[in-house]
Design a protein around this nucleic acid. Structure first.
Lengths: 123, 123, 123, 123
DNA sequence: GTGGTCTAGACCACG
DNA sequence: GTGGTCTAGACCACC
């Protein structure tokens, strides 16, 4: 389900957050679905439950999860995070595009690559 | 020349690296130009010379600078880093584009924004 | 009658206590009226009877209910809790007002808002 | 500087957050002032440094502090949190006022108390 | 010395 | 069993 990279400079909890964000945004996890418990996911990833908890806490703070104490963590409905994620992702894309322009990558190349990436969708 | 943001999460040396990268890529620093010494740049930015040294080391490792023992650090000719930077920037841009697709941002919106960003150039 | 919010941070029994408090204080439940049994209210709210029992216990402890062994729980006459609730609510209001003063909210704004809130009553 | 109440149901880190918020909002701590280190404040309050860190993290997330890794935590300028705190405090005050109305506290009493509280300021 | 992360282990409230 | 909090102790990056 999740593969950790211990050579990555980023902290473990942040890697987990990122993977779960993608899973939720891409629809791999549905609204109101129960997440694995902090203990079980900790076992599965060979990581301390506290670390999982930290990841879940951040996901809750960002609106991707909601917590029912004593019951578990659940995926929040899309309406809670849809707008926020789009804004954030678009901002990052614009920054990446500015960097590409500064590096002298021609507009045409990006236009073509853009189409290619959206073609991948059909796979 | 360089403005540091101490509230930025990233380490100081990384900020310096990024600023100098942009200066070099954008042509603000020419090939074979002598960089300021670690001591003088340290003074100018009110930063420990060790920090500057670390930034220079990373820039050298990435091919932007070359060191002449006892003489100082110099900007490497464009041929040294042109391909590397383009490949890296393009890869990041593709990742950002994939994220945008996963978040449900329509192709048309990106195509329009892409043109807008390249229009900014003229300013 | 009562709608529970499972995403609320507060424990379930505390939500039930709060709702019943408001019902009693606002006159929705009259003095000496019989409360539903812990079993039936538990069924109605899809909640463990133990949870209802805990809510009833707290309401009794605060003077809103009285228990007759083997008969059930009954709403206490207003005289039992009127003074306590007023004192508690007033104390919380004063604290909130002090916080508002510390945050620099001007006296006039609170005076106007105060009138507005008491105007809502007529709706 | 800070007194903890171990009988309080709320977690320790939350008590610390609340106290420091009040200190900052009331001007007891000035912008860009250095906060005590997590270790020293931990010693002072006889609390684990991790607990202090959690409090600082939340204060940073709320915009009251900014962190310079390896240097310490510093009070953020007022502009960062002024609007947020006013909105939050006002909302809580309105809720407290509604509760007061529901409990049958007369408008005149609140109006008088309101003036009294703002008179305390002069002390 | 500073903050940041992580672990192991413990206790508690909740349902 | 679940999440939430806390401790003690450890290691790391940064400056």
């Amino acid at each position: 389900m999740i593969l950790l990279d211990y050579r990555d400079k980023r902290p473990i909890y942040e890697q987990i957050v990122e993977k779960l964000e993608k899973l939720i945004v891409s629809g791999g996890l549905s609204a109101d679905e129960k997440m694995p418990s902090v203990r079980s996911l900790g076992m599965e990833l060979s990581v301390n439950p506290n670390t999982i908890q930290r990841a879940y806490a951040q996901l809750e703070q960002e609106g991707y999860l909601y917590t029912v104490s004593g019951r578990g963590n659940f995926v929040a409905p899309e309406s809670e995070w849809r707008d926020g994620i789009k804004q954030k992702v678009l901002q990052e894309w614009i920054t990446a595009t500015r960097n590409a322009r500064l590096s002298g990558i021609p507009l045409e190349q990006l236009q073509n690559t853009l189409k290619d990436v959206y073609e991948e969708e059909k796979q």
